[in-house]
């Protein structure tokens, strides 16, 4: 009963705020429309300088092939290797292909390791195509058949949007009440800890529902990407993730005195949680110690599960493990959030 009043208050406050409603609507839209274009980890537009000393028909054909390839941009013919190196140092070329006496030297700028190695692998595939007999091994790519990086990243974007919206807003909310002094007034009322915390959490869950719906719609409208698995399960996962992040935000704010402090602490954990979740790079590539931390990282379970549902078309059976883990961690954090809120010191 009191819960109803507290929740109404939260919504009124959000609506009255000049900034929050705009943020809640605009943020997912901007992120969903822009970020998939930014988050392209696939190697493209690699600039290749060719140092062709042989000047054979073969090498001419190779240059044409490079220019025609999706991966490469032909950077120009250079007379000497040293001259091409200049381009690399200036940053205007990424790979040098030197053709001398029928031998091919591929030198790639590997400061960005992925780009350097992938680029040189692609290039060596083109170059060595005439020499290697066609491989007896065929490849069947499952699920993401077009090799579309967006399909891989969009579920991850859901996670990022949810994390920022349901993590930071509640944090600012409670610290704001502390700084305004209104929390003291609430503390002398008979409101139970549970209803106070729930009243803080529920509005953000509803916002999370709204946000995830916007994200799903945009993924469909803008990119034509729809989940291969059941939709309801995505909502369940989103709610569980929202439970975790909103509880986590409340915990941080319960222990912080100022907004700045809360934001910094929050930001620190969010960055760690995000980087160690397999969102950008596979968890399995991590060293042992880093991989161990992913067992308690709710984001990892979310990412694994939502990609399974979205891309691989899995259902509850395939993701039961992740759903349970996420629910467990979320419930634990929820209890901690209530526990850490002190009405009497």
């Amino acid at each position: 009963m009191t819960l109803k009043h507290l929740i109404r208050k939260e919504f009124l406050q959000i609506r009255r705020n000049s900034f929050l409603p705009k943020l809640i609507v605009m943020f997912p839209i901007v992120v969903m429309c822009l970020m998939p274009w930014v988050m392209q980890m696939d190697v493209k537009n690699v600039v290749v300088d060719v140092v062709d000393i042989d000047h054979t028909v073969e090498s001419q054909r190779l240059v044409q092939q490079i220019a025609a390839s999706n991966y490469f941009i032909f950077g120009g013919q250079k007379d000497t290797y040293a001259e091409a190196m200049k381009d690399i140092e200036k940053g205007s070329a990424d790979i040098i292909l030197e053709i001398r006496d029928g031998q091919y030297l591929i030198a790639a700028n590997a400061v960005n390791g992925t780009k350097g190695s992938m680029g040189s692998v692609y290039l060596s595939q083109i170059v060595s195509a005439p020499f290697s007999a066609s491989s007896a091994i065929s490849v069947l790519t499952l699920y993401n058949k077009q090799q579309d990086y967006k399909l891989f990243m969009i579920p991850a974007l859901f996670a990022i949007v949810m994390m920022l919206m349901t993590g930071f807003l509640p944090t600012l909310n409670i610290v704001g009440e502390k700084e305004a002094g209104t929390i003291e007034q609430i503390n002398v009322t008979p409101v139970s800890k549970w209803s106070f915390i729930l009243a803080k959490l529920i509005p953000y869950w509803l916002i999370a529902l709204f946000v995830i719906t916007v994200c799903l719609l945009l993924a469909w409208i803008v990119y034509g990407i729809t989940p291969a698995g059941p939709l309801w399960l995505i909502y369940v996962l989103a709610m569980l993730l929202a439970l975790f992040f909103s509880s986590f935000g409340l915990i941080v704010s319960n222990y912080s005195d100022t907004m700045q402090q809360a934001m910094f602490v929050m930001w620190f954990f969010v960055v760690c949680i995000m980087l160690l979740s397999g969102l950008f790079t596979p968890t399995r590539s991590m060293p042992e110690w880093a991989y161990m931390t992913t067992y308690i990282n709710p984001m990892r379970y979310f990412i694994d599960a939502i990609r399974t549902i979205f891309i691989r078309g899995g259902g509850l059976y395939e993701t039961a493990h992740q759903v349970l883990a996420l629910a467990g961690i979320g419930a634990l954090m929820g209890c901690w959030a209530v526990q850490s809120y002190k009405k009497n010191s």
Partner: peptide, 19 residues
């Protein structure tokens, strides 16, 4: 046996830290 010879400049072990 392949005539192709690859070389990774600056970061031969491809450590991500370099980047």
């Amino acid at each position: 046996l392949s005539p192709v010879n690859s070389r990774l400049l600056y970061n031969p072990q491809m450590k991500s830290a370099y980047n």
